[in-house]
Design a protein around this nucleic acid. Structure first.
Length: 270
DNA sequence: CCTGCTACCTGATGGC
DNA sequence: TGCCATCAGGTAGCAG
């Protein structure tokens, strides 16, 4: 559940299940998920702690504990599942948090995701490097203009840089640029104010629509096979190489930018 | 400091 | 069917 809208949808749906619960015990099935931390330390730190609140920063999910916090990142495929007692067989569990009446499982067969404990938020280095959150009220046109002015990279690369703006990933960067009619290879620092205005409202609109799509139906943590349904229905360019642009009919192109697939319409994105 | 490249992992998919 | 190459919604760390 990679980008900010997916994490936001998870946060909203998960909150009633776990807020106020106490972590009775933790079980590290695959230590790689807490790397470079150590299982014994991890368990010692989280055992007995109450999950006071759940929050989000960029693509990170935060479980704020009575002492310290857990910082989760799902990378490509990481997932949360709730079980009544023990995980059902066949589910690739990395870490189990035994709560009062349920078991919260961090699941990631590819082992890219992480769940890390920190004594306080300032100790979480990855969080301190994050730029302005896309869902923050401070994410305004002037704020975006100021951020983009400092770099001359391709606008697509700048949007993906979490230290500039936090929460946009590979799908929604392509989507927002298509919506804003901006070529992904435009230089961030050379965008005109009108282009930045278009980009800003496109980012906001695309992400808001994504949150709605990811929340309806909400993630079903009780079903180990849950994933965001019908996401492709809201996508306008992503993974549409060769198919007609939904605005002008030209063939959508796929290029590599910053090592990532980038989709755009060569005719209406200038 | 800034930027681009690669490693990190496993599973799904498609061509031959 | 089997085998191999390619691709995947991300980030840290390192080299230039």
């Amino acid at each position: 559940m990679p980008e900010a809208p997916e994490v936001e949808a998870v946060l909203r749906a998960l909150r009633p299940h776990i807020e106020g619960c106490t972590i009775r015990d933790a079980c590290i099935v695959h230590p790689i998920a807490i790397k470079p931390q150590r299982a014994t330390e991890f368990v010692r730190h989280v055992r007995g702690q109450t999950i006071q609140s759940i929050s989000r920063r960029g693509k990170y999910l935060l479980l704020n504990l009575s002492r310290g916090l857990l910082v989760l990142h799902f990378k490509f495929d990481g997932q949360l599942i709730l079980f009544d007692r023990q995980p059902s067989p066949g589910v690739h569990v990395d870490v189990l948090l035994h709560l009062d009446k349920t078991v919260l499982a961090f699941v990631d067969p590819r082992h890219f995701g992480r769940i890390l404990w920190y004594p306080d938020i300032a100790s979480a280095r990855s969080l301190s490097k994050l730029g302005l959150d896309v869902f923050s009220p401070s994410f305004t046109v002037p704020a975006l203009a100021k951020i983009l002015r400092r770099t001359n990279r391709f606008i697509k690369s700048a949007l993906l840089d979490q230290s500039l703006v936090a929460g946009i990933g590979n799908i929604y960067s392509s989507e927002a640029l298509w919506q804003a009619k901006l070529n992904p290879r435009k230089r961030a620092g050379r965008l005109k104010i009108g282009e930045i205005r278009r980009l800003h409202s496109s980012v906001v609109a695309v992400l808001r629509r994504a949150v709605r799509c990811c929340s309806e139906p909400p993630p079903d943590f009780r079903n180990p096979g849950w994933w965001f349904a019908d996401l492709d229905k809201i996508l306008r360019v992503y993974q549409r190489e060769g198919r007609p642009c939904r605005r002008c009919g030209s063939a959508i192109r796929r290029i590599e930018l910053a090592g990532r697939s980038t989709y755009f319409c060569p005719r209406c994105q200038r």
